[in-house]
């Protein structure tokens, strides 16, 4: 399979990258890990005239701790996320998602920003990131804006990213000690897998460790975009932890999901699995919260 012809740009700074994107507009696409874009170009689904490679921009490759927040550079790879001590400490569900994305070979190329910008409904990183309430930083010559990740996705392959913008950073406020999160993916095989359904759940307990103070439940592959489940969250917040609560939250999440039938699975199955995975992800989250 041959790639279509294109011009290649390799800026060394974010400013330079923004300048190029601003000059080229629709003709250009930023290239990060390439695991999605290069495949789509080989399959002739996309054929941008220009690729703007971000891989040489050192600023985009860092994971930094800053005033209680974790800032993840756009070009941090899934493997780096999965292995990062900063992520393991307190952001374990993100590490879990990153550690199960694609295959070890893919994880060494695929980047966190790529996994967001490609906006695949079944992607592994959006649910845990949304569960932690992550924000994304979008930069262009026109300036910089920060958006909650959950507003970023507009549909399969569709985001709020403007044609001249680059997603440069993901910001997560470090969760309190009493919080925990879990991520689960259901597929048919154990690697190289696209989720049939995935769920991330986040809970924060009160000081007594028995009541849920905050909760987020995020569902993947069951709607055009990763989806928060307001009903499940409402049901959880302020309640005392007990097994039937998570069962009910799972059922509420299933009702919020909007899956479709496709060749990978039926809507009915996906909806039922949302209930199961939500309960399991909540249990993982609880276990982590209690460990703290």
């Amino acid at each position: 399979m041959l790639l279509p012809k294109f011009d290649y740009h390799e800026p060394l700074s974010v400013d330079e990258a923004c300048q190029i994107m601003s000059d080229l507009g629709e003709k250009a696409k930023p290239l990060a890990g390439g695991t999605d874009l290069i495949v789509n170009m080989k399959k002739k689904i996309l054929s941008p005239e220009h690729l703007v490679a971000l891989s040489r921009i050192e600023d985009l490759r860092k994971i930094e701790l800053l005033n209680g927040s974790v800032r993840i550079g756009a070009c941090v790879t899934a493997a780096e996320l999965a292995e990062s001590q900063e992520i393991k400490r307190g952001l374990g569900a993100l590490g879990q998602g990153a550690g199960i994305l694609g295959s070890p070979l893919i994880r060494n190329l695929a980047t966190v920003a790529g996994n967001l910008v490609s906006a695949r409904p079944a992607a592994d990183l959006p649910p845990p990131l949304m569960a932690y309430g992550a924000e994304v930083v979008l930069k262009s010559r026109r300036g910089e804006r920060t958006l909650p990740l959950e507003t970023f996705f507009q549909g399969p392959g569709q985001t709020l990213l403007e044609i001249d913008e680059i997603l440069t950073e993901i910001i997560i406020q470090r969760p309190p000690e009493s919080a925990g999160a879990g991520y689960i993916k259901l597929g048919t095989r154990k690697a190289l897998e696209i989720s049939l359904v995935n769920v991330a759940a986040y809970v924060a307990l009160d000081s007594s460790g028995t009541t849920i103070e905050a909760a987020r439940v995020v569902l993947g592959a069951v709607a055009p975009t990763p989806l928060r489940s307001p009903s499940a969250e409402k049901l959880l917040i302020g309640e005392k932890v007990d097994p039937s609560l998570f069962e009910k939250a799972g059922q509420a999440a299933a009702k919020d999901s909007r899956p479709i039938d496709d060749f990978r699975g039926s809507a009915q199955y996906r909806r039922d699995m949302v209930a199961v995975l939500t309960r399991r992800a909540l249990n993982m989250a609880l276990e982590q919260a209690r460990r703290a």
């Binding site: 290239l31 493997a79 694609g102």
Partner: peptide, 21 residues
């Protein structure tokens, strides 16, 4: 990038060379 037959080690990490320009 689905099969791994093209694996090379780039800067110490195994990658699918079919996905790298």
């Amino acid at each position: 990038g689905d099969c791994g037959a093209c694996t090379v080690i780039m800067d110490g990490k195994p990658v699918n060379s079919c996905l790298v320009l």
